[in-house]
Computed example of a mutant assay.
Amino acid sequence: MIRGVRGATTVESNEADEIVANTKILIEEMANANDIQAEDIASVMISVTSDLNATFPAKALRLIEGWKYVPVMCMKEIEVPGSLALCIRIMMTVNTSISQVNIQHVYHHKATQLRPDLTDQ
């Protein structure tokens, strides 16, 4: 079965190292929480808010061993007035036997406010 796994994080500033580091942490937690291997992934889409342009957050995938061939694309999130700033969102499309209700979506830092119904906070 193909499922979507969502995740989001924020950074404190538009700084390349922080963008890549926070993205890598998020991706690794999403994979670990859902027992995802690189071979299970159909694609990864990463969006960023317009205030993030210091680097491509997709670089984080290339730092994860075995993820060399995972297709990834970055894009700009739509600009909605009052929306969360400095935010990186991820949609990972994977092959899994986990049911929809049991997928573990992951939200870090200020991004927990995006889906409070899916976080412990």
Score class of each variant (00 low, 15 high):
residue 31 A to I: 02
residue 51 D to C: 05
residue 55 T to G: 13
residue 18 E to C: 04
residue 99 S to V: 02
residue 23 T to F: 08
residue 34 N to H: 07
residue 75 M to S: 07
residue 40 D to G: 08
residue 109 H to S: 11
residue 59 K to S: 14
residue 75 M to V: 07
residue 69 Y to E: 00
residue 110 K to G: 04
residue 93 T to V: 14
residue 70 V to S: 08
residue 55 T to P: 03
residue 120 D to P: 03
residue 74 C to I: 14
residue 22 N to P: 00
residue 57 P to T: 00
residue 35 D to L: 12
residue 8 A to F: 03
residue 45 M to V: 11
residue 69 Y to K: 09
residue 36 I to Q: 04
residue 83 S to T: 02
residue 32 N to V: 15
residue 51 D to T: 07
residue 19 I to T: 02
residue 52 L to R: 08
residue 38 A to K: 01
residue 33 A to I: 00
residue 36 I to D: 02
residue 12 E to K: 14
residue 68 K to D: 10
residue 70 V to K: 11
residue 108 H to V: 03
residue 110 K to Y: 01
residue 14 N to D: 11
residue 69 Y to W: 09
residue 105 H to Y: 09
residue 58 A to D: 15
residue 114 L to Q: 02
residue 85 A to K: 11
residue 82 G to V: 06
residue 5 V to H: 02
residue 14 N to V: 01
residue 97 S to P: 12
residue 92 M to T: 05
residue 73 M to I: 10
residue 87 C to T: 13
residue 118 L to D: 09
residue 35 D to Q: 10
residue 80 V to N: 00
residue 23 T to L: 10
residue 33 A to N: 02
residue 15 E to L: 14
residue 55 T to C: 13
residue 2 I to L: 15
residue 45 M to R: 12
residue 34 N to G: 04
residue 100 Q to S: 15
residue 121 Q to Y: 15
residue 9 T to S: 04
residue 6 R to K: 08
residue 74 C to H: 11
residue 39 E to I: 08
residue 95 N to W: 14
residue 96 T to P: 01
residue 17 D to N: 14
residue 89 R to V: 12
residue 12 E to Q: 11
residue 54 A to E: 06
residue 95 N to V: 14
residue 26 L to R: 00
residue 104 Q to M: 14
residue 113 Q to A: 14
residue 64 I to E: 03
residue 71 P to I: 05
residue 47 S to P: 03
residue 9 T to I: 03
residue 13 S to A: 15
residue 39 E to P: 01
residue 77 E to Q: 15
residue 18 E to F: 05
residue 84 L to F: 00
residue 15 E to S: 12
residue 17 D to Q: 12
residue 6 R to S: 11
residue 6 R to I: 07
residue 73 M to H: 08
residue 88 I to C: 09
residue 91 M to K: 15
residue 98 I to A: 07
residue 50 S to I: 06
residue 76 K to E: 11
residue 26 L to A: 06
residue 73 M to D: 01
residue 119 T to D: 11
residue 57 P to C: 06
residue 9 T to F: 03
residue 102 N to Y: 09
residue 44 V to H: 02
residue 18 E to P: 06
residue 60 A to P: 09
residue 91 M to H: 05
residue 52 L to F: 09
residue 22 N to F: 11
residue 57 P to F: 06
residue 48 V to E: 06
residue 99 S to W: 08
residue 86 L to Q: 12
residue 4 G to P: 14
residue 1 M to Y: 08
residue 46 I to R: 03
residue 1 M to D: 15
residue 10 T to M: 06
residue 119 T to Y: 04
residue 107 Y to A: 07
residue 88 I to N: 01
residue 67 W to F: 10
